[in-house]
Computed example of a mutant assay.
Amino acid sequence: MIDRAGLAAFLRHRRAALQPEDVGLPRGQRRRVEGLRREEMAALCHMSTDYYARLERGRGPQPSEQMMAAIALGLHLGLTERDHLFRLAGHLPPVRGASREEYIAPGLLRILDRLDDTPAEIVTELGETLRQTRMGVALTGDLTSFRGPARSMGYRWFTDPSTRDRYAPDDHDQLSRVFASGLREIVAKRGTRSQAERLAGLLLKESELFRKYWDLQEVGVRPSKGKRFLHPEVGLLELECQTLLDPDESHTLLVYTAEPGGDSYEKLQLLSIIAGSLP
């Protein structure tokens, strides 16, 4: 049963504890509230301000499990806090390990939120983008909008030619080897009933290109630090990819940078203008 008063109090307290700089927002000079504003919190949780405000006032319908998961991410909750939030809302907490790809460690989120002027994203071991900076969206498009198997970069790579069009043609063979090799390793690690196994089965049915590289039986093929993106507006960008791994959740933070003074560095400055127009 939902504890409306307890849920409302918890949400208000956690919102007040978050500072704008914790989530990549400017503080500004006229801020009068402690912590984040309700409209800022609602935006982080991908819901309307009215709906979020009703939750903080102990009103409205019982929020869904999906809504609670979104709020937990928006509030940067740890696992114990997330489980408490679910119980207050009248739901059983997610089984730890069953939906790990949806949970992002607060520390990793805090780092991402401080990279608003840099293309960056958090991805799962299957290449599913969970969060992007605005510069990341400007570089590659909104990769969090995909659903089903298309959430995986590897699946899109082998089934959607437009995905490959975003990368320099000379790199396609190496990237195909990387994606097929990586998926083979994850299948062996996670087992025959895993999401990775289901994804490999789909690709074997749907993609002749995937079958070609899967049949190579390669493992251990690693991506290079250098990434060459073909952007529809600014052209070729040669970037370096730095990674930070969260081993507990099998998530990776990818950060893309360019050598200062170079052509790609100048193009990133142009991308920042595009990013500034994004919601």
Rank of each mutant, 00 (worst) to 15 (best):
R87H: 05
H76M: 12
E125I: 09
R110N: 03
L112V: 11
L77G: 03
R114E: 15
T124W: 03
T118S: 11
R87E: 15
I104H: 03
P93S: 06
I122Y: 09
E81R: 02
A98T: 13
P106K: 10
E121Y: 03
E121C: 13
A98E: 13
L77V: 06
Y103W: 13
T124D: 06
I122R: 09
A98G: 08
H91K: 05
P119H: 09
L92H: 13
F86C: 10
P119L: 05
I111D: 03
L73S: 12
T80N: 11
A89M: 03
D116G: 15
L109R: 11
R110W: 11
V95C: 07
H84F: 07
V95G: 11
G78C: 02
G127L: 03
L85P: 00
E101C: 07
G97F: 07
D116C: 13
D83P: 06
H76K: 05
R82C: 02
D113S: 15
E128Y: 01
E101W: 09
V95K: 13
E101G: 02
P93N: 07
R110P: 00
L109Q: 15
G78K: 08
L108E: 03
Y103M: 04
L85W: 01
G107L: 06
E81G: 08
D116A: 15
A89N: 06
L75I: 05
R114C: 14
D83T: 04
E125R: 12
R87W: 06
L92G: 11
P119I: 09
A72K: 01
I122V: 14
R100K: 11
R100S: 11
L79D: 10
P119R: 11
R110Q: 15
G74P: 01
E81P: 01
L92W: 10
L85A: 03
A120V: 10
G107C: 10
H76D: 13
R100P: 02
E128F: 04
P93L: 10
L109G: 00
I111R: 13
L85D: 05
T80A: 14
E125G: 09
A89V: 03
P106C: 14
R96C: 04
L109I: 06
D83Y: 06
L75C: 09
R82W: 01
L112R: 10
R87F: 01
V123E: 08
I111L: 15
I104R: 01
L75G: 00
G107Y: 06
E128N: 08
P119D: 04
H84W: 07
A89G: 12
T124S: 15
A89R: 01
D117T: 14
L75Q: 12
G127V: 06
R96S: 07
F86P: 08
L112P: 04
G107A: 14
A120M: 13
T118I: 14
T118V: 15
V95R: 14
G74Q: 09
H84P: 01
E121V: 04
G97D: 09
G90S: 07
F86V: 04
D116T: 14
Y103D: 01
T80L: 10
L126A: 03
P119C: 07
L85I: 05
I104K: 02
V123P: 02
D113H: 14
E121W: 04
P93R: 05
L108T: 11
A105M: 10
E121G: 10
R87P: 02
H91Y: 06
L79W: 13
